[in-house]
Amino acid sequence: MSVLVFTENWDGKFKKSSFELVSYASKIAEMLNTSTVALSIGNVTEDELKNLGKHGADKILSVTDERFNYLENQAYTSVIAQAAAKESASVLVFANNNMGKALAPRVAVKMNAGLGAGVDQLPKSTEPFTIHKKVYSGNAFGNVIIKTDVKVLTLMQNSFMIVENQKDGAVETFAPEVNEAHFKTKVKDVAKQTGQIILTDAEIVVSGGRGMKGAENWGAIEELAEVLGAATACSRPVSDEGWRPHNEHTGQTGKIIAPNLYIAAGISGAIQHIAGVSGTKCLVAINTDKDAPIFEVADYGIVGDALKVLPELVAGIKELKS
């Protein structure tokens, strides 16, 4: 038996979520009294692979076949299922992000496994296997029993603390069988941001709403993000207006994020916006309207003009850091 973790790298470096996942998986392995195996697909150095061992991976399977340079759902599904069979995995863990959402349901069907999508903590029990997940876009939670022998889980990002848990982390090259017929998509172009913090992976996010009045005022948001090492986000009307790019829109119909700190400036706090950020640990709201619904969900609030408050916040944080 084992718990198999699907990791993701970003230009050869593991994403923060992958360390979260390995930490999480090794805890489940402890509950089941078994070992943790991490699967890595892509070009990752041995040293970086070994980092997974620090967070609880007993073994690391590394696939470097170039045909996997781009995500091809059927081909990846087959590799993961082969790895799971080889390691007799009884639990498979993915991140609840773009890649995890693309692969976990396919893998679940292929392995006759029940899927627990978007879990936010360790299973409440392993007999029966009961998971906890958000439902109704964060307005409630559900306890769900997975009845099958093999279980597939996707873990909400930022919902489990990375822990140090040094294990062997032996790296093993894995050469799965590859079916050429699985490669049906051709990548024609890639536009990737580099050097910027990825919104869904960010620990701190600074976000602006319609109350920021216009694209010309975003300097303050960017400056605050800069001093905090944060990513920037926005509400839907802001991206609809074209003040900010669409990939920054958070909410029910945009990105769903769960950072440690979310600073909402000039955002009213509509239920659809909150649905995208309800997993945030600490939410700060800056709004001129003391009755804005955002204050019902915020941990800290300032009633005031964001255009005035943000620069003062920047100054305060600079002072703190110096």
Partner: peptide
């Protein structure tokens, strides 16, 4: 994709 997009056929 995280932080960008791919164009596929």
């Amino acid at each position: 994709i995280d932080g960008g997009k791919e164009v596929l056929s």
